[in-house]
Amino acid sequence: MTIANLLSQEIPALDQRSTVAEGILIMGDYHVRHLPVLINEEFRGLIDEDTLLDSDPSASIGSLMLPSAPRIFVQPQDHIYDAVRVFAQHQISLLPVMDDEELFAGVVTLENLIAAMAELGSFNDPGSIIVLEMGRHDYSLAEIARIVESEGAIILSSSLRSYQDSNRIEVTLKLNGRQIAAIMATFERFDYQVKASFNEAELQSALRERYDSLMNYLNV
């Protein structure tokens, strides 16, 4: 999935003639803390809410933009992981998009990015989650998939997290099945450390058993 799939032209950019008051109003209307600024139709960077709130409401946006302001942006052909990296690095609420000719094309909002990540990670699909921990040199997605598939399930998505100053990694698996006890047992049989598991069906069953036990106790 690329940035082109997330591109929005709904949120307007400010120009050098826009006022601080207008910028604050637009931020409030669209629930964002940043807006792109165009000077003579050229993208010059983002301006943030704190800067506007600390300025004269009648001041022009052009008077607040420094020539050295960083031009944070992505391009339509970039992968959405690039947007995740830029969002995290700069702590911004929207991300400008520039086309191949470096013309402003629109923005990616944080809400759209989260929705896309949920779709990409199969977060909306029913199933279960297993979290494994292992040495980096022990990681083999092919081997992990073989174990999962041997129990009649498939991996919908997977992600890795590295530990700082360690050769250990955490592998999170989203599986299509809700019955994962056998899969977890197989992982442990092959010396994988099962760090955590999340299973909606098993949780609901446990809550039902506890509820029934409470009702039986109250009826005694």
Rank of each mutant, 00 (worst) to 15 (best):
L25A: 15
V97H: 01
A83V: 02
L207H: 15
I147N: 09
Y211E: 11
Y30R: 14
L173Y: 11
D212N: 13
I80T: 07
Y192W: 10
T19E: 07
E119V: 08
I39A: 05
S55K: 02
L160G: 12
N216G: 08
A21P: 15
L64S: 01
R210C: 05
L175V: 06
D56H: 13
V194P: 04
E101T: 01
K195W: 03
L103E: 05
F104A: 00
M184L: 03
T172V: 05
S162Y: 14
L110E: 09
D48Q: 10
N199R: 12
I11W: 04
S55Y: 04
L35T: 07
S68A: 11
I147W: 12
R210Q: 12
L156D: 14
S150K: 13
S55A: 11
Y211R: 15
A21I: 13
S93P: 09
T51C: 01
T19Y: 06
D54L: 15
V220P: 01
S140K: 05
V220F: 15
E151P: 13
I180A: 09
I130S: 01
T172Y: 04
A181E: 12
I39H: 05
M184F: 10
I92Y: 05
V97C: 02
L66Q: 09
Q179Y: 09
Q77I: 13
S162P: 02
S140G: 03
M98A: 05
S159I: 09
S166Y: 11
E10A: 11
I11F: 04
V86A: 04
D78W: 10
A116D: 06
I72K: 15
L35K: 12
I155Q: 07
I130K: 03
L110V: 12
E188N: 10
S157G: 10
L38V: 00
A181N: 14
A185P: 00
A13Y: 11
I80V: 07
A59C: 03
D165T: 05
I3N: 01
M65H: 00
A115R: 13
